[in-house]
Amino acid sequence: MSTTGTSHRLGRVVVVTGASGGVGRATVRAFAARGDKVALLARGREGLAAAADEVERAGGEALVVGVDVSDAKAVDDAAQQVVDTFGHIDVWVNNAFTGVFAPFTEVAPDEFRRVTEVTYLGYVFGTRAALRHMLPRDRGTIVQVGSALAYRGIPLQSAYCGAKHAIQGFNESLRCELLHARSGVRTTMVQLPGLNTPQFDWVLNRMPGRARPVAPVYQPEVAARAIVHASSHARRREYWVGGSTAATLLANAVIPGLLDRYLARTNVDAQQEEGRPEGPANLWSPADGPHGRDFGAHGRFDDESTDDSPQQWLSRNRGWMGAALTAGAAALAARKLAAPARR
Score class of each variant (00 low, 15 high):
P208S: 09
D138F: 14
A211Q: 05
R132G: 08
H229G: 03
H180W: 14
G184K: 08
A251V: 13
V185R: 03
I142M: 06
R175Y: 05
I167L: 00
L250Y: 12
M134F: 11
F200C: 03
V145R: 00
A224C: 13
M189K: 00
R235A: 15
G126W: 01
V203T: 07
R175A: 04
Q168G: 07
E221M: 07
T188A: 08
C176S: 13
R175H: 10
V268A: 12
E177C: 11
Q219H: 13
W240E: 10
S173Y: 07
R236S: 11
P155G: 07
P155R: 05
L204H: 01
Y239M: 08
V254P: 10
Y218Q: 06
A181Q: 12
K164D: 01
E177K: 11
N252A: 12
V222E: 02
E177T: 13
G194A: 07
A129N: 06
M207W: 03
Y218G: 04
R152D: 07
P198H: 03
A215L: 06
T248H: 03
R237G: 13
I227P: 00
A223E: 00
H165F: 05
G140L: 08
E238I: 08
G140D: 08
V241P: 03
V268W: 13
A226E: 04
G257Q: 12
L250F: 12
A129P: 03
G184W: 08
R212K: 13
H233P: 06
R132D: 09
T248C: 12
N252F: 03
N205V: 04
F170Y: 08
A246D: 15
L195E: 01
P220E: 07
Q199K: 02
L178A: 10
